[in-house]
Structures are given as C-alpha cells and as structure tokens.
C-alpha cells in the first residue's frame, strides 16, 4: 500500500497570535512552530495502516525550509520518506492554491498511490478545504473528519463525525481521508527514529519543477485586512456563600443577559 500524508508547519496552539497590520501577516518572531495537530493524527494513521497491511508512507509538506522540522518529526515517528515542496510565499489562506500544488505534484511526480491522508484542517488557516479539493481534482472518493478508519485490500470503511452523530462511509481505493481528533493516539518519536530522521535526506521540489504558472498560483482570496478579535472586558466577579452566589448568578442570567 502506497500511502501519502500531507502535513503543515503551524504555530503551537498555546501561542498568542500577534498581527503585523502593515503586511497583513501574523508576527512569526517568538512563535513556536509544530506539526499541525490534526496532521499528526494523519501521520499516525498512515503508520498504523502500514503496520496492518504493509506498504510505504511518504510525507509531504508545502512551505519554507523551516517546514523540514515537521517532516523530520514525521520521519522520527516512522514515516519512510519525506519531501518538501518549497514555497516561500506568505500564507494566502486559499485552499485551492494548495490543492492545485498537491494535485499537480501527485499527477506529475508521484502517480502511484492508494491512500492520501490529511489532517481535517490546518490549525491556523482553519479552512478544512484542501482534502476535498484534492479529491475532486484527482477524481477520488473522500471521507473527511474521520474518527475511525479500516483499510482492506482495495477498499475501505470510515466513520466521520457530524453534528451529534457519525456517518459510516464505504469507498474504493485510492481515496482521500482527513483525520479528526479521536482517530488515534499519536506515538512519540523514539530515539532511534530521531537519529534516523536526522540522517534522512529530504528532497526539495520547487513550484517551478511542477510547471505551475504564476497565474495558477495567484491566490483568489484577496486578503484585505487582519485584526485581533475585539477584546472582552472582564465583568463582575463575586466571592460569596454558594447559595448566594448561585442566586446572583441566575439573577444575572435572567435579568441582565436575558438568556433564560
């Protein structure tokens, strides 16, 4: 089974996001970057599928040289190969642009595959677009927001999360799957894995290598501005006997907030 996983380098979820208003970007200084949490579930799932049915796991990332860190992490977890598609352009928050790069990469350079795994969304852009777009461009079935995956020969079954319920989907391979929290518990890198990942060569592919024109790469979501969310003001805080506190709380909900 030939499994591809697509991962992204993102700011740690514990980070405060500061904005450079002049350039409509986030300020990267002082940020700690990590493998996007949902992508980590995707890497783990790829390794588990490989352990069950055999095969090879190749991990891809699109981004600057610094994105190699998340590829090294995936290698240290146990992925066989990693490839960086070098893209130094600023985050455009446009899923179609990324989906086009991935689809072209697969069609031209890596045409043999059985399973394409993604995180359900990157932490940051929060788009949840790329997996479905790649599936459409390559004409593949898709199951997104998956909490359980079973792969068997040339077909699979997945459970995907919806509002207050779950959907079971059966599909033929190759297919696109995106991982949701709950799919698995990602393993820690082993010392041996980290040593191997260090030595492993990560080939670079440029956007020019993929023959993508500037027009194709131009984001079509025009970022007008970035803001911090309106700050909330702290309200009233009380410290009283539980009965009195409960009474005052309910009075607030009823009379001021008018939610009950």
């Amino acid at each position: 089974m030939n499994i591809f996983v697509f991962v992204k380098r993102v700011p740690d979820t514990e980070s405060k996001i500061r904005i450079d208003r002049e350039n409509n970007t986030i300020i990267e200084e002082e940020l700690n970057f990590i493998l996007s949490p949902y992508d980590e579930y995707a890497v783990e799932e790829a390794l588990r599928v490989r352990e069950t049915v055999g095969g090879k796991v190749t991990v891809f990332s699109i981004g600057p040289d610094e994105a190699k860190v998340v590829l090294k992490k995936a290698l240290a977890m146990g992925a066989d190969e990693a490839v960086l598609i070098k893209d130094d352009s600023p985050e455009a928050y446009d899923g179609l642009r990324i989906a086009k790069i991935i689809s072209r990469l697969i069609k031209d350079k890596y045409p043999g595959y059985d399973l394409l795994l993604f995180g359900k969304q990157s932490v940051g852009a929060d788009n949840a677009q790329v997996p479905a777009m790649v599936a459409e461009i390559l004409g593949l079935p898709q199951v997104n927001v998956v909490t359980k995956l079973d792969i068997d020969d040339n077909k699979g079954t997945a459970i995907r999360e919806i509002e207050g319920a779950a959907e079971k989907v059966s599909f033929p391979l190759p297919a696109v799957i995106s991982a949701q929290k709950g799919l698995n518990e990602p393993r820690y890198e082993t010392l041996k894995g980290i040593m191997m990942a260090k030595r492993k060569e990560i080939p670079l592919i440029s956007l020019q290598d993929l023959g993508l024109t500037e027009e194709e790469l131009l984001p079509r979501l025009e970022l007008i501005k970035m803001d911090s969310p309106p700050a909330r003001e702290a309200g009233k805080v009380i410290e009283e006997e539980p009965e009195d506190a409960a009474k005052k709380l309910v009075e607030f909900l009823h009379k001021e907030a008018k939610v009950i």
Binding site: A234, A246, V250
Partner: peptide, 26 residues
Amino acid sequence: FKVADFGVIGDLFKVIPPLKEELKKV
C-alpha cells in the same frame, strides 16, 4: 475571569446544587 461577564470564585461542587435549584425555579 478576564473574559467572563459574570464570575463566581468558589467550589463548583458547592455552587452547582443551589444553582440547579435556582435555574429550575426561573
């Protein structure tokens, strides 16, 4: 508490039972 419109400093296990009764009433 920095984002709450109404905060109660206290033991939630002690606050919830009377809170439940008050809510029911309203």
